[in-house]
């Protein structure tokens, strides 16, 4: 029997008559890298927001590591071991990279509520924060404010932040969106490196990225699952080809 870390069944999200995600059944096997692809508006980001609690499903259930997490708040889902990155780079511009990591590492400790302590108490996380920044190749820029970073560097900090929560499941929303070819390859290597011992679900439009990373690919179209299989299977599937060409011709 396969070991599923994440299972969504009959997942539906209705926005006042517009069904963005329709009866989606998705199972993510533990330890695999799973890609979600599909044309714009296929419901990928909505699905991500459902899985991470930023949206509440209209119907359907989500099970993570044997627990029903349907309807939980994002912060609680984060504590259970699901970390996400955002499609649009979403950092605190006037904080240094190190401060970002400190904030992420302090999150499960409850230190954040201690308004009577000095912020220097956050320095206890420096060691681990620097290790994480080193993993994504940003250790040299630890004390710079992220507002000054190039796009690829910001994405790297995003990854480090997601890793800081030491998640069992990592959800990456378009980790290579808007990147130049050099940054894309570097990010692929990075994801391969951090994938060891983790389960990753990611969305990407770049088929090179999908092909290099994914053990399994789910293709979404108009909120529904069109095809699921290995990259090779999906790539040759006629429905997928039509969906993409159809969109290109539209």
């Amino acid at each position: 029997m396969t070991d599923h870390l994440l299972t969504a069944s009959g997942l539906t999200k209705d926005f006042r008559g517009f069904t963005a995600v329709k009866q989606v059944d998705l199972s993510v096997e533990r330890g695999t890298v799973h890609a979600l692809v599909g044309p714009n508006g296929a419901g990928k980001t909505t699905l991500f927001n459902l899985l991470t609690g930023f949206l509440t499903p209209t119907s359907g259930t989500i099970t993570f590591d044997g627990k029903d997490i349907t309807g939980l708040q994002p912060e609680n889902i984060a504590h259970l071991g699901i970390a996400r990155s955002f499609q649009i780079t979403s950092l605190f511009d006037n904080m240094t990279a190190l401060e970002h990591l400190e904030l992420a590492l302090a999150s499960p400790t409850g230190l954040g509520l201690k308004f009577w302590r000095s912020e220097r108490s956050l320095e206890q996380f420096h060691g681990r924060a620097l290790e994480l920044l080193d993993q994504v190749g940003m250790a040299d820029h630890a004390t710079r404010e992220v507002g000054q970073f190039a796009y690829g560097q910001k994405r790297a900090v995003e990854l480090a932040l997601a890793l800081a929560l030491d998640p069992q499941l990592l959800l990456l929303d378009e980790p290579t969106a808007g990147m130049g070819i050099d940054d894309v390859d570097r990010t692929i290597e990075l994801i391969i490196r951090i994938a060891a011992g983790r389960t990753i679900v990611f969305v990407d439009h770049n088929m090179h990225v999908v092909g290099s990373l994914a053990n399994r690919v789910t293709v979404l179209q108009q909120g529904q699952i069109l095809v699921e299989g290995s990259y090779e299977e999906v790539r040759q599937d006629e429905k997928v080809i039509t969906a993409y060409l159809g969109q290109a011709h539209a």
């Binding site: 984060a78 970390a83 979403s90 999150s107």
Partner: peptide, 15 residues
């Protein structure tokens, strides 16, 4: 201050 700058991100970090 992180909440002020980006509430969604703060929530994703578990706050």
């Amino acid at each position: 201050q992180s909440i002020r700058d980006n509430p969604a991100r703060a929530r994703a970090l578990g706050y």
